[in-house]
């Protein structure tokens, strides 16, 4: 049970990554691999500040802001210098690897002592539940695990609602239209380049925020932690879309969060069953491949069946 609670907590934290990927990949149709660098950037920035005794709120916000800068850079390289989107992301991601090492000073920064969000949540848990363990549907669960899960969930819900509200404003609607039909949005007098820069900035801000929280939850930031994160985010978004079965904005955002949690639960169960952790990324990549290709294949077979009727 505590295994599942831990998995769900990581799921909630990484759902911010999923929301970031949703924004870049689904809204802008931009496979933004900057995410792999910016999640580490967020984690590293927050970790090094926490080690130096900075307030957890400020440290987390700094991680988030660093991610926004990274995303804006990718956007600027792509829109102002005309570099292919995927390549702009790769450039920034590669540059971030060195930058992250500089920020962290070494490849791994442990957060063994001091205050952070996890200790906040744990303290809150002890005072609310009044003991070390809580009974959840017959299972004895550590109060601090449960409160961390709840705090992570509430935090993510808050961010998701803010994102939803933003995407429905004038600016947010223009942003969604940019990915949908850039000719139309230019004809409406919107500088679509600026929209992409801002969108990637927000996307990577979310990803870095996810990294900052993840570092505080798992107790360390590691320069390698970003590898494969884009595909994990994609997997969450795709699972989410399958869960809600519609492309409507509110549902898709909820779906991305649910998809991320479900994905981590599946991973936890798979590892428990004895799947080799080294194969995890291979399996995830294969899953995303199938999820990307399958809808097109199904559509093709359906059309082939329909053909004789149409002639």
């Amino acid at each position: 049970m505590s295994l599942l609670i831990g998995a769900a907590t990581i799921g909630f934290i990484l759902s911010l990554l999923a929301l970031g990927v949703f924004l870049s990949y689904r809204i802008f149709v931009f496979p933004d691999i900057t995410a792999e660098g910016s999640i580490t950037l967020g984690a590293g920035t927050a970790a090094i500040l926490l080690v130096n005794g900075v307030n957890p709120w400020a440290a987390t916000a700094a991680g988030w802001a660093a991610g926004m800068v990274a995303g804006a850079l990718t956007g600027i390289i792509h829109t102002r210098f005309g570099v292919n989107g995927l390549l702009s992301g790769i450039l920034v991601m590669t540059a971030l690897y060195s930058i992250n090492l500089h920020i962290m000073g070494k490849s791994n920064v442990p957060l063994l002592s001091g205050e952070n969000f996890t200790t906040y949540a744990e303290r809150l848990g002890r005072s609310v539940f009044g003991g070390e363990t809580v009974n959840v549907a017959g299972w004895e669960v550590a109060a601090r695990d449960l409160s961390t899960l709840i705090v992570a969930g509430l935090f993510v819900a808050f961010i998701a609602i803010v994102l939803f509200a933003f995407l429905r404003t004038d600016l947010g609607t223009a942003m969604r239209a940019t990915g949908d039909n850039d000719q139309m949005i230019r004809a409406s007098g919107v500088n679509h380049g600026n929209m992409i820069v801002l969108g990637l900035s927000i996307s990577n801000g979310l990803v870095a925020l996810s990294g900052a929280l993840l570092a505080q939850y798992q107790g360390f930031a590691d320069v390698q932690m970003g590898i494969g994160m884009l595909v994990w985010g994609l997997a969450s978004v795709i699972i989410g879309e399958a869960l809600v079965g519609t492309r409507q904005l509110g549902y898709v955002i909820t779906g991305a969060v649910m998809g991320s949690v479900l994905f981590r639960l599946l991973v936890a169960v798979a590892l428990r069953w004895g799947v080799n952790p080294n194969d995890l990324k291979l399996i995830t990549a294969f899953f995303v491949f199938v999820a990307l290709v399958l809808p097109g294949l199904l559509e093709k077979t359906r059309q082939r069946k329909r053909k004789p009727v149409h002639a």
């Binding site: 404003t169 004038d170 000719q183 139309m184 409406s188 007098g189």
Partner: peptide
């Protein structure tokens, strides 16, 4: 070419109603 397919009719028209205005955080 002239409309954004995944946006609703209302959202498309609302975007057009603000052609040439700055896009802010106001409700559409």
């Amino acid at each position: 070419s002239g409309t954004s397919p995944n946006l609703t009719i209302a959202e498309n028209l609302a975007l057009a109603s603000r052609r040439g205005h700055r896009r802010g955080l106001g409700s559409i």
